[in-house]
């Protein structure tokens, strides 16, 4: 009769070795899983900040002001006011990390011939395509001639304000 006691130890040893190898692999692998996650986190923070900024710009300060700053900006094409307000909101200092944020903003409307046009509002730097930018949008109802040279009187239109923002 063959004594199988030695086999037991061998198998146990092999199994333990395998598990240890697997453990080591997992420990190493676990960290690499999260690297892309980190990038998403800063994207998420940037997106929240950008959409908050647009939402705040679209809120009139009290009930006697009927149009929000953002509506006024689009109606009067006041790009520098947009820039001031937006950077003011996004670079507001707290205890958290400093946000050196660049942006590029435009609004989109539909012309009478159903082409979609996006004239720029303002930008702190040109978007070259190399940046890791997030996009935030805000619907705004404006009373404006669209396109600006149209012969028709101004009417209520829905336009989509789009902002790309990124960190330096």
């Amino acid at each position: 009769m063959v004594n199988s006691g030695g086999q037991l130890y061998t198998i146990e040893g092999v199994a333990a070795g395998l598990i240890m190898l697997l453990t080591a692999y997992l420990v190493v692998g676990a960290t690499s899983v999260y690297t892309p996650g980190d990038a998403h986190i800063s994207d998420m923070q940037l997106e929240v900040l950008g959409s908050d900024a647009l939402a705040m710009m679209d809120t009139p300060p009290n009930s006697s002001v009927t149009e929000s700053p953002l509506q006024q900006i689009i109606e009067t094409d006041d790009g520098s006011r947009f820039r001031n307000l937006f950077l003011n909101y996004t670079n507001v200092s707290g205890y958290g990390p400093k946000h050196d944020i660049q942006f590029s903003a435009s609004y989109t409307y539909e012309a009478p011939d159903t082409t979609i046009t996006s004239p720029p509002i303002n930008s702190s730097r040109n978007l070259t395509g190399g940046e890791h930018a997030v996009r935030v949008t805000k619907w705004v109802i404006v009373n404006k001639k669209l396109p600006p040279l149209s012969a028709d009187p101004p009417e209520n239109r829905a336009v989509l304000v789009e902002v790309h923002l990124w960190r330096d």
Binding site: T108, Y109, E110, I116, W139, I141, R157, A158, V159, L160
Partner: peptide
């Protein structure tokens, strides 16, 4: 109508 149209298309 105009605004609704804008919203849908955009």
């Amino acid at each position: 109508d105009r605004v609704y149209h804008d919203i849908i298309n955009l």
